[in-house]
Every structure is written in C-alpha cells, then in structure tokens.
Amino acid sequence: MSEMTDAEIELKLRDFFESNFQYLKESSGHAIDGYMREKAFQQVLYYWKKNRALIEKITRSEVKLSLPERVTPNDKISYTIEGIVDIVQEKDGTWLYDLKTHDIDRIKANITQYKEQLYIYSYIWKKLQGNELDNTAVISTTLPDRLEAAIRKRKPELIEQELEAWQPVIPIGYKEEEVEKIINNFGEVVEKIEKSEFCPPDVDVLLNKPAGMKSVFAVHICRNCDVRYSCSSYEKYLEVSKGATRNTMRKYMKPSAEERDEFIQGNMERE
C-alpha cells in the first residue's frame, strides 16, 4: 500500500464513495443533495487523512464477536450478545477499536455507554477467545465543527491547524471486574424485550435533558420519532409543557420552517 500516493488513494476513495452513493441511491430510491453529498465525502476524506497511520495498522477490520449461552437474570431466557470491532495487533500491543459516526462531545458525555460495549467485546476477545489485549478505544468519524468550518472557508492553513487539533481517538481501557455487572444489565434489557415490555419512558423523562444534550428528551429524541403522535407519554408531555389538549394536539405535528425546507430540498434531489 505504501507505494500508493496520497492522490491515488484519494482517487480510490472517490471511487468507493461514488459507487456506494449510486448503490444507495438505486436501492433506496432517493438521495441526499449535492451539499450533503460533498459533506459526506469530506468526512471520509478527512477521516482518512487524520487516521491514516491508524487505519494502516488495522490487522482485521469488522470482526464479529459473539458471547453465546447467556441467560437473563430472572427468567433464564437464553440469548447471545454480538458486536463488531476493528483490531490492531502489532509489536507494541493489541487494541480493539469501535468506530462510531457520533461526534466527540456526544461520546464524551455518554462515555459509560461506549465503555460498556468495549468491555463486553474485550471480554469476548480476551477471556473467551484467549487473545492478547492492551487497550481499547472509540474512534469518532464525525468531523469537529471547527474543522468543518475551516473546510467550508477553504483555508488550507486553518484546515491543517484544525486537523492537527482534532482528537478522534478516545482511549477507553478495560476492566474485567466490571464485566459481570454490565452483562447483567444487558440481560435485564433482553428479558424485558423477550417479555414484550414496550411502554414508553415516563413523561418525567421526556421533560428532562439526557446527559450531554442541550435540549430535553422530548425535543432531542421524540422530535425524530415518527410514532410520537400515538405515544401516551408524548401526549402528556405536550399537555404539561404546552398546555395542549387532544383537540389541539395536531398543531404540534407540524415541522418547523427549517425542518420543512431541509426535508423538501433533500427529498427532491433525485437526478
């Protein structure tokens, strides 16, 4: 690979990108507009530029790890946990990487959730499969706002500077003693799924901000949920926070002007 120049790899990347774009477009019947498309390409390109050294070290990509024969804590329903990681094995150590399209701030605010995943994967990799393990990390593929702004302004020095400042790799480590509890929590969720317990979160949850989020649950999460109109908790939320009644509820179904514009422009992009 080393004999390929940056420009050649960039071309290759463009190839992959275009072919995936066409495929997704053909199979989904819609696409994203030119601006978003370029934004997506930038994300991949700068991800590559920033992480080239790391990517070149990856020994196995997309390794599926599974933890079979688990049973839920109370009803003893059996289940399997599965996950996918990238693995770097080299002289100075073995790392497990979990690739995420989430932004750094979101990852940092919810670090426990990322930790739990990697701990389980590490457990399977090390304990169950008997492999070496030195450390784990999450990689965020989303470009930081400042880097994006620099790219938008097309200022090479600024781009260079922001690229330098970007820290996409967040080391997580591994503590085996915590795994049992994590798996137990996982099992509790599986049990609820298996027993078909699907009531929405209480209205109090909707009225509060989830960790690391700027807006309340109802805005941040529910706003993107198509079935909120039929949800009892969302209905209560509208009642409590906006004084809505069943009769006026419909008013709140409308998208904002901005959402509307984005939606229309995005969906009219076809040819």
Binding site: K39, A40, E56, I58, D226, G266
Partner: peptide
C-alpha cells in the same frame, strides 16, 4: 421511519470507510 435522510448520509460514510479499511488491510 419516515425521514431516512440521515440514514442515507450515515450509510454512505460508513460503507465508504469500511471499503477503505478493507482495501488497506487487504493491500498489506
């Protein structure tokens, strides 16, 4: 889901990154 725009974006980025990684891993 009704609005699948963000999914398109995510899949596009994710699949291209995967292709790239496979390409590099394969090349080595």
């Amino acid at each position: 889901p009704s609005r699948s725009q963000t999914m398109f974006f995510g899949s596009l980025v994710h699949e291209t990154v995967e292709d790239l990684q496979n390409f590099i891993v394969g090349g080595l």
